[in-house]
């Protein structure tokens, strides 16, 4: 009891209302407990972030020590061999290649969707149409993987052959053993998956465009497109960049859909129509079951690389948003 009052008095800095002695002191104690647990939860969240880095490093180091090859430049992934030989060169290449291709395809479409919903669609339908696009994000990646493996991939087989027949002079579309389980298929599925996040953030940015500027452009005799080019796109530029970066972060870390679609083959190849290719995340999902002690450590090491890459991309995107907020 006394300790309760103590707590109450010690923390009475605001000095608001000392009416009911006892009730107030239990109130104070409650305040203390509640404030601390609220703060504590936030701290737990920070601790988790730190722990992720610490534990990944801790498990990765022994495997990296045992590695006979250069982790960053080696293309093979044989951590279970004796001696273990593994490196992320091919995985990192596949990850970056598929994500950038996805970004390249998704960003213009996503911006188009955002423009459509914000400025072109009839007002009454706009929110419903926006919801439809958001549904794309509600479909789990495992379902995209299933769809990609057993339906879409077979369609992409034909697309790949067509591109290979007529455009093999473009290095990306060259090579043989063209198939539906290629980096291109994976990229298209990734693009579909990151469309909704890019377009919904872009839509939010468009909502913030000052009406006054839109009207200024219209009053100068600008067409709808000219108005968008004059008042909307320049205003939303940094927002769109960070939206694209967040989409990129998603694509880099996407695991299951890619793991299902790609038929793994080793070696770096820029022929994106070829069956095969691999990414860091997909490799973790695919090799985990057979991984021994070193194998798990090696996978964790590759996960650490993925963590760092996505962290940098995400922090960059957030920093752009934050800086923009200060200016506008």
């Amino acid at each position: 009891m006394t300790s309760e009052i103590d707590v109450g008095q010690r923390t009475d800095t605001a000095g608001n209302g000392r009416a009911g002695g006892r009730r107030m002191s239990t109130g104070r104690l409650g305040d203390q407990i509640f404030a601390h647990s609220a703060r504590g939860s936030g701290v737990v969240l920070l601790a988790i972030m730190a722990a992720i880095a610490v534990f990944l490093i801790w498990r990765a180091v022994p495997a990296l020590r045992a590695n006979e090859a250069n982790f960053l430049t080696e293309q093979e992934w044989n951590p279970n061999a004796t001696p273990p030989v593994f490196g992320i060169a091919q995985l990192a290449f596949g990850t970056l290649m598929s994500s950038f291709l996805a970004l390249l395809m998704a960003t213009p479409v996503a911006i188009g969707i955002a423009l459509f919903i914000s400025f072109y669609a009839p007002r009454r339908l706009a929110s419903g149409l926006g919801y439809l696009v958001d549904l794309l994000a509600a479909v789990p990646s495992i379902v995209y993987g299933l769809w990609g493996l057993h339906y879409f991939g077979t369609k992409m087989d034909d697309v790949g052959r067509f591109l290979n027949d007529y455009f093999s002079w473009i290095p990306l579309f060259g090579g043989d053993s063209v198939g539906g389980r290629s980096l291109l298929t994976a990229s298209v599925i990734l693009a579909i998956m990151i469309l909704p996040i890019i377009s919904s953030i872009t839509r939010e940015v468009f909502l913030q465009v000052p009406t006054a500027n839109v009207e200024a452009a219209l009053a100068l005799g600008a067409t709808r497109w000219e108005t968008i080019r004059m008042a909307v796109l320049p205003f939303g530029r940094s927002g769109m960049i960070s939206a694209a970066m967040l989409g990129l972060g998603r694509a880099l870390g996407e695991t299951i859909a890619v793991a299902m679609v790609l038929s793994t083959a080793s070696g770096i190849s820029i022929h994106i129509l070829k069956d095969g290719g691999n990414t860091i995340a997909a490799n973790i999902a695919n090799s985990f079951a057979e991984a021994g002690e070193t194998g798990r450590g090696a996978l964790i090491a590759s996960g650490l690389v993925l963590f760092v890459i996505t962290l940098i991309v995400n922090m960059g995107a957030r920093a752009i948003v934050a800086r923009r907020k200060e200016f506008v």
Partner: peptide, 21 residues
């Protein structure tokens, strides 16, 4: 209407220059 606004100019209550220009 685009042609109309081209010949009938407008100045608004609050100044609204394009902020990025």
């Amino acid at each position: 209407p685009v042609a109309v606004r081209r010949v009938v100019g407008m100045v608004f209550q609050r100044p609204n220059p394009f902020p990025t220009m």
